[in-house]
Design a protein around this nucleic acid. Structure first.
Lengths: 231, 231
DNA sequence: CGGACTGTTGAGACCCCTCAACCTAAGTGG
DNA sequence: CCACTTAGGTTGAGGGGTCTCAACAGTCCG
């Protein structure tokens, strides 16, 4: 990979923070560019973990399927975030399926390559630990929400999280910066698309949000916070 | 710490697997023994993360509190497992409160000490990554359960998980090896103690389990699996 | 022996899921 | 370009699983 360009791509990726120039080059030499078209699958749940990815641009949805065909959205991955880390580091099989929801670009390392990199540069392992730890905390937060909150609050929390993660200022508010369906939101909050649709319709008529096909614009984030925190 | 004894204590702790004798001694010299009486608190939610623990024997309950006073059980920690890892490695505050449910013994390292150990011995960082990754998968599994399953199945899953984690063969079946209340089970499954009590009563009259004050004996694990998997 | 904690059980209400019908927007192929 | 297909979204009606409220019983502990 061209180093000048590669360094630019890895700039700002938390996983490689604090690495020396030489270490960064070591990382770059081990990775390969990997283009993904909208709708393509990067890896499937339970597949043997062959590779690990860092997203450069685009958006990837990670889902889990239940044996009886239901789906749950684990998370959306944005630029600078990693995927498949857990699987590669000791897991036996990817925990979910990764699908691009937009045309995307990732950098790919084989399982062996990333293990070697971590052994040579402990900082990478520690950064990864911090990132995975952060996700664990998020997951536990979500468990707490699902245990203690009613659906409306959970949907509000999910929207606010999406805004924080992928919000883009537009004329009338903040837009979630990638195509996301009612079904997706339902699978993030443990409810049905019907309930999500009803809730968003109600909020739209209150002027809190503006909806559209696979599109949500939050017009009044503070109002959503009021609902999320039950004030 | 006495090395001979210390090595015995750390034997079988996944976090330190694959370490050389010298590395293990390095680890031991940095840690301190820490006794905890039943009911004592090891650390509190949102406290600045000062230390990291590995449990030698006993049992510790990790909980999260919501602002409005509700509680959620994050997990039970058993011998050989670690606590506070995520907080120490980049978090700003413990994600939960750790309370001993039995008299326990832990080994304690300061945040600085564990960071130094990981830098000197990358294997520790990678083992930690594997462990945290495993917990992340568990958490996501729990999210999926709470999204897609009814209460009865979730309680069955929780009991089976407890049996796997802390089951002890007794005359009439497998007993969960530490005091656990109906309220605890409710907080693990996102329901109320009332529903748990009703469900366990029903199962008891079917001969699946035997209950008692802070006590559960599973008499027919296979029957529970049938419920958990909805067969 | 009284108080606190834990567990049991009943009755009623309500949130939300399920089922169902229909609508609109975006592709698709001739 | 237009009929057709498909995916995504909206909305209504009804039923049921759980929560909430409430009262009480058993057990542990100071």
């Amino acid at each position: 990979m061209d180093r000048e360009q590669g360094r630019l791509l890895l700039q700002g990726v938390g996983l490689f923070k604090g690495l020396s120039r030489e270490a960064l080059d070591d990382v770059l030499d081990a990775g390969r560019r990997h283009r993904i078209a909208k709708g393509d699958v990067l890896f499937r749940q339970a597949d043997p973990p062959e590779a690990f990815y860092v997203l450069v641009y685009g958006r990837v949805k990670v889902t889990q399927d239940t044996p009886d065909g239901q789906q749950v959205v684990v998370r959306f991955i944005g630029p600078g975030e990693m995927m498949g880390c857990v699987a590669v580091c000791g897991g036996n099989g990817y925990p979910g399926t990764a699908t691009a929801v937009e045309d995307s670009l990732a950098i790919r390392w084989t399982a062996g390559a990333i293990a070697g990199l971590m052994q040579r540069h402990p900082t990478i392992a520690m950064n990864a630990l911090g990132a995975v730890g952060g996700r664990l905390q998020e997951a536990q937060e979500r468990i707490r929400e699902m245990s203690t909150e009613k659906v409306e609050r959970r949907i509000a929390h999910a929207l606010l999280r999406l805004v924080r993660q992928a919000g883009r200022r537009v004329e009338r508010g903040v837009e979630i910066n990638f195509p996301i369906s009612r079904q997706d939101i339902a699978e993030m909050t443990g409810t049905t698309l019907h309930t999500v649709s009803r809730t968003l319709s109600a909020w739209e008529s209150q002027g809190l949000i503006e909806g559209g096909r696979q599109r949500v614009v939050v017009r009044n984030p503070h109002g959503l916070v009021t609902i999320a925190e039950d004030l």
